[in-house]
């Protein structure tokens, strides 16, 4: 197996809740309950889950933007939260991000040239203007934008082209790892396919690794090798993308896959239930039992008393369920 580019170990991230009064005890909300993922170089790992499952918090923790309360993030062998300023600056060249909103993530008052060269300007201080321009030309060509775009402003581009600019900005420091948080969710289907194809081309050409975060199972299936399904801050199932989606082992993954409307399936078959739909919520800290037990259709006594551990289904596939 090739080397590991990203490895997180037992990431825990809590947010402090506002106190109702200054005398009340400080409460906190645990959003990541010990998340461990591994991504091999040149591969892509998808993180799927619903809103509030902690997938974006995981992305922010991996990007070094939110220090976890405990746990480590190793990128290319460096524990990024243990590095000092100068070393972190050096390490940051190796990992870059693409964000969801191609309208909000590009400064409207800057030219594309300024936007794209910002990572180089701040992370590689010594580089001269000529070399910088060469790099800009290089990445613009890589994402399929004409060189003349460098002197335009973001509003002159369509959503798909803006996302290409965001990709160019991520590529300019020649990173090995790209963290993409919902990079195509804001795009139309036909444009989404163009951007996904571009990301796959770049991955093969430059040997990139992607940590690809999305709520869209179809998109994740198209671009990732492995997938981790998150539910309330825990990874409940992880394995090869195709296998997990074709034959999910965790009841939550099963519910997620079943809920996606599919063309050709004819009119929906409804499960009429009079019970109000329940949504499990984050808990302050670790509770005993399985977090999904409240709504799980196959719940047993053991689910309420024992926290399930990740059980291997195959050597590369595991599910955090007593009955997987």
């Amino acid at each position: 197996m090739s080397e590991v580019i990203l490895k997180t170990t037992d990431l825990v991230r809590e947010y402090q809740m506002p106190r109702p009064s200054i005398f009340s005890k400080q409460a906190s909300l645990r959003v990541l309950h010990g998340v461990s993922v591994e991504l091999a170089a040149g591969q892509s790992l998808g993180i799927v889950g619903e809103s509030g499952s902690g997938k974006s918090t995981l992305a922010r923790a991996v990007m070094g933007l939110e220090r976890p309360q405990s746990g480590r993030v190793n990128i290319a062998g460096n524990d990024i939260y243990a590095l000092n300023g100068a070393d972190l600056r050096e390490a940051r060249k190796g990992f870059q991000a693409i964000f969801q909103d191609p309208y909000g993530s590009l400064d409207p008052r800057h030219t594309v040239r300024t936007i794209i060269s910002e990572p180089v300007v701040s992370l590689e201080r010594g580089i001269d203007a000529a070399a910088r321009n060469r790099r800009i030309a290089e990445v613009l060509e890589a994402v399929g934008l004409p060189l003349a775009s460098a002197d335009k402003y973001p509003h002159e581009f369509s959503g798909g082209q803006r996302q290409r600019i965001a990709i160019a900005r991520a590529l300019i420091t020649r990173p090995a790892l790209i963290v993409a948080d919902e990079p195509v969710s804001a795009l139309d289907v036909s444009i989404q396919a163009q951007v996904l194809n571009l990301m796959m081309d770049l991955q093969e050409k430059l040997g990139l690794s992607y940590l690809f975060i999305s709520h869209d199972l179809g998109v994740v299936r198209a671009i990732t090798d492995r997938v981790a399904v998150m539910h309330l801050g825990r990874i409940v199932e992880e394995g090869p993308t195709g296998a997990v989606f074709d034959n999910p082992r965790h009841p939550y993954t099963q519910a997620l896959v079943a809920a996606v409307p599919k063309p050709f399936s004819g009119r929906r078959k409804r499960v009429r239930s009079d019970a109000p739909p329940q949504t499990p919520v984050h808990t302050a800290t670790t509770v005993t039992g399985c977090a999904y037990a409240a709504v799980c259709p196959v719940r047993q006594e053991i689910c309420l008393t024992q926290t399930p551990i990740a059980k291997p289904v195959t050597p590369t596939w595991s599910a955090r369920c007593h009955f997987a």
Partner: peptide, 15 residues
Amino acid sequence: LDVTVQAQILDLLDD
């Protein structure tokens, strides 16, 4: 909406 919530809302509309 999320897919599982989407399914609930579509069921409701259907009903």
